[in-house]
Design a protein around this nucleic acid. Structure first.
Lengths: 350, 350
DNA sequence: CCAAAGGATGAAACCCGTTTCATTACTTTA
DNA sequence: TAAAGTAATGAAACGGGTTTCATCCTTTGG
């Protein structure tokens, strides 16, 4: 019913489907050697037009698809790049993954997505697996600094995305000016008239979260404002829980800096549920600039990261690492403020 | 700096990192044959305790990681299952992917996610690639019926998820009772007092969208209500555009059935922007029951699909297809109504 | 007209983990 | 004590595409 039908010695199928046959079968059919078939397929050497035609016909007839595994084994390259992310449920990472996937496709690479969920062991296993699979490189966006020591001696190039890892163990780091982002968020809330701002910090072992917090903290210090923080993970469940806590601890709050957009959305949910109006009673700002931040109602004011540029840069480093002579080891991209509906000031920037 | 250091003939690295070395090197170091090393690693045959210890020590010393590609080539199995989805940006599919990934991991399989974006050629290429990679099976959730004819003779098992494909070409189909979902949505809006309901249909070439529409349509017919429909894709951009159109064509509308949750969210955004209150002036219901439907404010009333069960069922069929004797070819799962805040009636169900 | 150069092609090695099959050594049974 | 059986292990083949190297044939230059 769905197995390949056998026809003589050659597996054939006539209904436009997929067939398994080997290069040797094709060769036999075309009355050439496997080497010649390989040359025709890859254009790696001149083949007489007459021969080429016969080979092409044989490929057509058998529906031959070259076995990628055999190719990978010899070439020591699977034309695959691993993308390690902490959560496939976080729209920020799926947006990133979507862009990287598309760009990689154009360069002839596949993306192997590894969802490690903040688990260090899973992350190590993912890297080992990618190495064992002859992947050509890794884009590491797990956010977990602890992986660093494990990376030394990794035989395939690794580029850290959204995290700061020593240039000793990775090809390069690509991240944003999170610190500036933290400052921007705080300064914006102040400009909007907030008197009582609380910063919901992401996990401090994550570089972006730490830097954002430090931006916020430094503005506080410069202006003599006491810090008010709550700790929170980068996911919505944590966001919901921490918002409850925040309202308990800081009932006077009139401005909230969320650890990222998805947390901002969950904060908004709680505020909405409690009939606390945004931005009238409390103003709210997020980080990341995911699609959803603009899709939610009201639209979320947020500090945008150039997701597309980050994806492009990271991929570029991995793909072109061999040919890079004077390579950068650090790409720091600028962030920008998107003033929308959860803060009061109508700004110049969109 | 990051290359593996060479030590004698054996590649070594002392800092806990990753190393490339072959089974033959390990064998040489342990003074055994590669076969014995393989037997120690896989437990495929008895090895003398003394020998085993030497081999283990050699593996430890070299940091040897068996090459998955070589293993896949021989075994004709990559311990990998392909998951083909139309969009990695749609939370429904990432939620699905997350669950499948987790379950597959427990069974010793990797998931290779293929984002084909509704492009038939990309989808064909993805399937060919999976075959060429010695994948063990495919979970096909692209929604695109047209792929059907391409599937015949596919040498690896395919299970269709969220779509209806002939049992001739797939191992099984797993989907929900979308028709019932369509009815449920319509009946609920009627119960909530809507007089002027518009159905925003998903692409009619997609099975779920067609079935949902037919559920809606049949309720209309049974009650003598004239149909009012607008066509829309399954993404938020389309949702935004179509809502504008809807409001133009049907200014009297007081109930909207969205093609899915993400479209419902974008509908809400437009309504909110136009100061049309939900559910007072217009009531709104979605399909899918993604996390986000509950996270948005107000919480979205929606027809939930048992995403977890679907994932589990699909994976089970693929993994266990060889041992299935009397196999089902169709798994139809029930949907359920989650009455939340975008419709008026406070229902029994949560 | 012969040598050198170039083009087309095939045989065989290669990538590396797995498995079969044969061999050796030793134990058990008759 | 011989025959039969068993455990441990290695040599070699295998999987399938790629590449090197040698070979053969044709063309070009002297």
């Amino acid at each position: 019913m769905k197995r390949v039908s056998s026809f003589g010695n050659v597996d054939l199928l006539f209904e436009g489907g997929i067939v398994l046959s080997s290069i040797r079968e094709v060769a036999r059919l075309a009355k050439v050697s496997p080497a010649t078939v390989s040359r025709v397929m890859n254009g790696t050497a001149a083949v007489a037009p007459e021969t080429r035609k016969r080979v092409l016909a044989a490929i057509e007839e058998t529906g031959f698809i070259p076995n990628e595994v055999a190719r990978s084994l010899f070439k020591k390259s699977a034309k695959t790049i691993g993308l390690i992310i902490p959560s496939i449920r976080n729209p920020y990472f799926t947006q990133l993954a979507g862009i990287i996937d598309e760009l990689a496709g154009k360069e002839g690479y596949r993306i192997f997505l590894c969802n490690v969920g903040g688990d260090l062991e899973k992350e190590k296993a993912a890297i080992q697996m990618l190495v064992a699979m002859n992947a050509d490189g890794v884009i590491l966006a797990s956010g977990n600094q602890e992986i660093q020591s494990f990376l030394s001696g990794c035989p395939i190039p690794v580029v850290a995305l959204d995290m700061m890892v020593s240039a000793e163990v990775v090809e390069a780091c690509v991240y944003c000016d999170y610190y500036q982002g933290g400052r921007l968020a705080m300064e914006h809330l102040l400009e909007c008239g907030c008197q009582n701002i609380v910063c919901i910090r992401g996990p401090q072992k994550i570089f972006s979260a730490r830097q954002r917090y430090e931006g916020y903290r430094d503005v506080c210090r410069e202006r003599g404002i006491p810090e008010q923080t709550v700790d929170c993970d980068y996911d919505f469940l944590s966001g919901l829980a921490m918002t409850e806590k925040l309202l308990e601890c800081y009932p006077q709050v009139d401005g909230i800096i969320a650890s990222n957009d998805i947390v901002a959305i969950s904060i908004y949910k709680i505020l909405h549920k409690k009939n606390i109006t945004v931005p009238d009673r409390i103003q709210l700002i997020g980080f990341d600039g995911i699609d959803l931040s603009e899709l939610m109602s009201p639209e979320l004011t947020t500090v945008c990261q150039p997701i597309e540029d980050m994806a492009k840069t990271a991929l570029d480093v991995v793909v072109r690492q061999k040919e890079n002579f004077e390579k950068e080891t650090e790409y720091i991209l600028p962030v920008s403020l998107a003033i929308r509906e959860t803060t009061k000031r109508r700004g110049r920037e969109q």
